[in-house]
Amino acid sequence: MSPKDITRRRLMEIGIKVMGGFISATSAFPIIGFITAPSLKQEEDKWIDVGAINDFPPGTYIKGVMESQVKDGWYITKERALCWIKVDGDKIVAVSATCSHLGCNVYWDEASKNFKCPCHAGVYDSEGKVIKGPPPRALDRLQVKVEGERILVNSIPVPYGEGKNV
């Protein structure tokens, strides 16, 4: 084998690696981008009507169903989510029903005046602060505004203690 052959062979070996590397690297970017793109889309906030003030007898938490038109990727659908609403005179509180642990819906237990999560036994007080169980933080709040007789809540939850209307 002459030195020339060795160089030629080396050159081809390097060529194989370079071309292979180029093809993998340039295809990885669009493919990974394509697969993950919709995941990175930030949600826009909107105000959702949950019902008239009269639908919520004052003094206790009542289930509020947030129904809104959304575009979930290609799919235009009615999205439904749950929140807990308490009307107390002029003050209206909307607590997100999504457990801060792993996202199950919490329910209001009138007897103990607590929010309870059916999944991993989390318990919150009537303010949404954690009393017992695994949840890492208090229940989120939803911003509330009243238009005429209707109660509107914002679709983007706010952590407890932040924002208005808490």
Partner: peptide, 16 residues
């Protein structure tokens, strides 16, 4: 949070 979003194809369980 990023992993969750990639798994779900968004922030919520849905069509994607």
């Amino acid at each position: 949070d990023y992993v969750v979003r990639v798994l779900r194809g968004g922030s919520k369980i849905g069509a994607l």
